[in-house]
């Protein structure tokens, strides 16, 4: 059962960035519009040392969002209890403002494949993912946010749309959603639907956080555009436009800039955050 007597801290409706250790000093000296940071849970599951020391220092100045990449919530097998316990320990000492994970699988048996792998949208998947989300929320004693994936292919046996699948998960589990508009743009391009149509069908009331980030362009076997979720460059203009479209529906929200590969100098990442701040200011202007 979720503990309703305790109000957890919330992420501010401001820009955030994915935290990279190389930015530690620059970020603290010149944070710009940054109100919060996202950290990947698994990078802080060691026993101590610099990673823990940096987090303890950063949480004095910034709200923290813990973003898991290893729970494998869509996995066919049971959740890894040891991993869930490690997550609980991290959440207990760090007391972050938010926890989020992905609609994907990454573990098979005892193997961890270090990628976010796709799921068919069927009743069986829905029941399994809902029960895994229930388990996570029970163990952590708080609501989690679930992120929509970037898709390169679909499953012939899917019986519902991704937006219907997410709506149903919100209904059954009470989880919130992390809306990644870069992923929406990638999936819509790759699977040939309109990203605006996706957003219009998406359960926007459940959004607790929005992600933007960069992608690469490739082509599939037939020469059709195939966008790759690389997080290795600036956010593309159509993704910023999609952020505006989403913010028009959500109102103000915490917006995160993701940049995980070929990580730039702090000034470049901060400029991206300033663009997010501008989008937030525009969306909430009277």
């Amino acid at each position: 059962m979720l503990d309703a007597t305790r109000t957890p801290p919330r992420l501010p409706c401001a820009p955030g960035v994915g935290y990279k250790p190389q930015h530690f000093s620059d970020l603290r000296a010149a944070p710009g519009p940054i109100g919060w940071l996202e950290v990947h849970a698994e990078n802080y599951m060691g026993d101590g040392g610099r990673p823990h020391a940096q987090l303890r220092a950063l949480r004095d100045d910034f709200a923290i969002s813990v973003h898991g990449v290893g729970l494998s919530i869509g996995g066919e097998g049971p959740l890894d209890k040891d991993h869930l316990d490690r997550l609980k320990s991290l959440m207990t000492w760090l007391e972050p403002a938010s926890f989020s994970e992905h609609l994907a699988w990454s573990t098979h048996g005892t193997e961890f494949l270090d990628d976010l792998l796709p799921l068919p949208y069927t009743e069986a998947t829905l029941a399994r993912v809902a029960s895994h989300i229930d388990q996570v929320q029970d163990v952590l004693g708080r609501q989690m946010l679930l992120e929509n994936p970037s898709s390169y292919l679909a499953f012939a046996d899917s019986t519902m749309s991704e937006t219907d699948f997410l709506s149903e998960l919100v209904q059954r589990t009470g989880c919130g959603l992390l809306l990644d508009v870069n992923n929406v743009f990638i999936s819509a391009t790759n699977l040939n639907y309109t990203p605006e149509g996706y957003l219009d069908a998406y359960p926007i009331h459940a959004v607790g956080e929005i992600h933007v980030g960069g992608h690469d362009a490739d082509a599939d076997d037939a020469g059709a555009p195939l966008l790759i979720d690389s997080h290795g460059r600036a956010t593309a203009d159509p993704v910023w436009a999609l952020l505006d479209h989403a913010l028009a529906a959500t109102g103000s929200a915490p917006v995160l800039v993701e940049w995980d590969n070929d990580v730039p100098h702090w000034a470049t990442l901060r400029a991206e955050a300033e663009r997010a701040a501008h989008a937030l200011a525009t969306a909430t202007a009277p």
């Binding site: 792998l117 292919l153 679909a154 499953f155 490739d218 037939a222």
Partner: peptide, 26 residues
């Protein structure tokens, strides 16, 4: 089997994105 691009075309390059992601990440 059972994977699709939504337009009835082969999915070899699309599946290769996942293959490449896993190999490169590791």
């Amino acid at each position: 089997v059972g994977l699709t691009d939504g337009a009835g075309q082969p999915t070899t390059k699309r599946f290769a994105v996942y293959r490449n992601n896993v190999t490169v990440a590791l």
